[in-house]
């Protein structure tokens, strides 16, 4: 299967307070047609920037190198007409739907805007919008089309965003923490809808989240980011049980568990760093319990290991006992 989306050695720098800062460093990823890839990481890890680079939504003045290819076309150099077509094929949904709708326009106007621009008649566009709302579990679509965003709850509005995105029949959906602001019961509902529609329509998904377990539940593969780099990619079902990178293992160990009472958590010392603050060697080295001198010397490459990829010099040697090494390391440090 050839990749629908291919990110190849993508590096991005942004203008921050008059200086160029690296936000992404040598990011390489592929997503096949109909495949769901989870992009997991903490704040500043570059997961949102990766999605924005793919959506051509990086802030003004951003400098990029490397390539983003969609269906073989180079995304970073698309001209205005091609970019417009590309945006029909790649849709985005964000964490806060309220920030992405016009509060003084009706839901119907928002949903049908693109269809109308394509020459679809008002009545036809409204019918299709109501149909899309039905697909996301909103049965009284006609009534909703006449309402304003403030009349809808967050969960309902996020479903409107998904329905709107469906109208464009995208081949790839970039979803940036789409359920983080929602209640947990609503999150389950919205994720179920997204998951179902994705399978039905064969849409590919880049799903950005800080929640390892959520990513594991709804994605085929997961990539973990730290300091603007990919540190691990893996089959989603293995991310939790069998991590390749010490950071993934440490992250899994640091989470409280709803099913287990524990007095203390295996916290990771220090704080997550952004790409521009990362030290010369392995970016995670200062916080890693498995660190050795050679880790600090040069940045490790992203190597193949078993059925995944990992950016760690000790990954091979720690294979199979990573989680235990993390627990021991935490215990000796505490």
């Amino acid at each position: 299967m050839s990749a629908l989306l291919e990110i190849d050695g993508l590096t991005a720098r942004l203008q921050v307070e008059g200086e160029l800062r690296t936000v992404l460093h040598d990011v390489s990823l592929t997503i096949g047609a109909g495949e769901a890839l989870g992009l997991v990481g903490e704040s500043g890890s570059g997961k949102s920037m990766t999605a924005r680079a793919v959506g051509r939504l990086l802030p003004r003045g951003a400098q990029t190198s490397g390539a983003v290819r969609f269906d073989g076309r180079d995304v970073l150099t698309l001209g205005p007409a091609d970019l417009r077509r590309y945006r029909g094929e790649v849709a985005m949904i964000f964490q806060d739907p309220r920030a992405h709708v016009n509060p003084v326009r009706r839901i119907g106007d928002f949903m049908t805007e693109t269809l109308r621009l394509q020459g679809v008649t008002g009545a036809d566009a409204a019918k299709r919008a109501a149909g899309a709302l039905r697909d996301v579990g909103i049965d009284d679509g006609e009534r909703r089309l006449d309402q304003y965003p403030h009349e809808l709850s967050g969960g309902l509005l996020q479903r409107v965003m998904i329905a709107t995105m469906l109208l464009g029949e995208p081949r790839l959906v970039l979803a940036d923490e789409p359920t983080t602001a929602l209640d947990v019961t609503t999150q389950a509902e919205v994720m179920a809808i997204l998951d179902e529609l994705r399978h039905e329509r064969g849409m590919a998904l880049l799903f950005i989240t800080h929640d390892l377990e959520l990513a594991a539940a709804v994605c085929d593969r997961t990539a973990v980011m730290y300091a603007g780099q990919i540190v691990e990619t893996r089959a989603a079902s293995l991310l939790d049980r069998d991590p390749l990178h010490p950071y993934t293992a440490a992250l899994a160990a640091a989470r409280p568990d709803v099913a287990v009472s524990a007095r203390r958590l295996a916290a990771i010392p220090g704080r997550p760093v952004s790409a521009f603050e990362a030290p010369a060697g392995c970016a995670f080295a200062p916080r890693c319990v498995c660190v050795q001198e050679r880790c600090r010397e040069a940045r490790p490459p992203l190597d193949r290991l078993d059925d995944g990829q990992v950016r760690c010099r000790r990954a091979q040697e720690l294979r199979g006992r990573m989680a235990a090494a993390i627990r021991e390391g935490e215990a000796s440090r505490a």
Binding site: L156, E189, A192, D195, E213, A217, V218
Partner: peptide
Amino acid sequence: SVPRPGWKPERRRRPEDQ
């Protein structure tokens, strides 16, 4: 509704959601 290993999100009809 809490994601966990082996969890699959479920779609359910909840009238209050509307």
